[in-house]
């Protein structure tokens, strides 16, 4: 099973990785607010945010190019709004939409690449995000890998019999649709089995927390320093 690159990055060891998820969440929110509210036509300010993020990537010992590439995921969506602004005769705003969206995505990639999802969810829980929503995300993330592995096995099985889920042929569409239906049915059955396994271990509708996170001096420093830097750039 191939794991997500971000998942592997999030398990690395660095000063930034070791920080409490709440500190990283606070820093990320401060940076996102500063980026989002920066007016168009301030390239030096946007360059300042980029330098901050670059420092984060270097401190976390992440591959710079890999992080840049992953942040590009937002560009197709931002591009639509950029083109609309361009057509409306506002090229400056079009560029700002693209750059700000890219910097925001970079912030989130850095957050996800330095914080394993379980820790991130714990951090969100302590900020009052509904537990039910977090449990759904947690289970979805946990079983995404299992379902992806099943899909991979089904694709191999189809390929080994000379078929596949190629969408160029009618047969490929039929096979793909059948595979999706099978995955859905299996996932439904698995959900029931997971619920049974939870009940068997005393589940009564709540996911108790085993280890509440601890907020130390380094965590306070990170959140304060990142927030101050973002605010200083925004107000400069």
């Amino acid at each position: 099973m191939r794991h997500l690159v971000l998942e592997d990055w999030s398990r690395k060891e660095s000063w930034l990785h070791a920080r409490d998820p709440r500190a990283k969440l606070m820093a990320a929110v401060a940076l996102l607010l500063a980026i989002g509210t920066s007016p168009a036509g301030s390239p030096s300010r946007l360059a300042g945010y980029a330098l901050l993020l670059l420092a984060g990537v270097i401190i976390a010992d992440l591959p710079v190019r890999g992080v840049w590439l992953r942040a590009c995921v937002v560009l197709p969506f931002a591009g639509v709004f950029g083109v609309l602004a361009w057509l409306a005769g506002e090229p400056g705003r079009a560029a700002a939409v693209g750059v700000k969206s890219y910097l925001s995505a970079w912030t989130l990639v850095l957050l996800a690449a330095t914080t394993p999802l379980p820790a991130l969810l714990r951090g969100l829980a302590s900020f009052g995000v509904p537990r039910f929503l977090l449990i759904v995300i947690q289970l979805l993330y946990r079983y995404l890998f299992v379902i992806a592995e099943q899909a991979h096995h089904m694709r191999l099985a189809a390929a080994s019999r000379g078929g596949g889920f190629r969408l160029r042929s009618r047969q490929g569409w039929r096979a793909g649709a059948g595979a999706v239906a099978t995955l859905f049915a299996r996932s439904h059955a698995r959900a029931e089995a997971i619920h049974r396994a939870m009940l068997a271990r005393g589940y009564r509708g709540e996911f108790p927390l085993a280890s509440p996170p601890r907020f130390g001096l380094g965590d306070a420093l990170l959140s304060l320093w990142a927030s101050a830097a973002a605010a200083a750039l925004r107000l400069a």
Binding site: P116, L117, P118, L121, Q138, L139, R142, Y143, I194, A197, M198, R201, G202, Y203, R204, F207, P208, L209, A210, S211
Partner: peptide, 15 residues
Amino acid sequence: FMPTVLEDAAFGPLN
């Protein structure tokens, strides 16, 4: 079903 092995083993005792 829990995110880590330790949290999973602690699920029952916490319940």
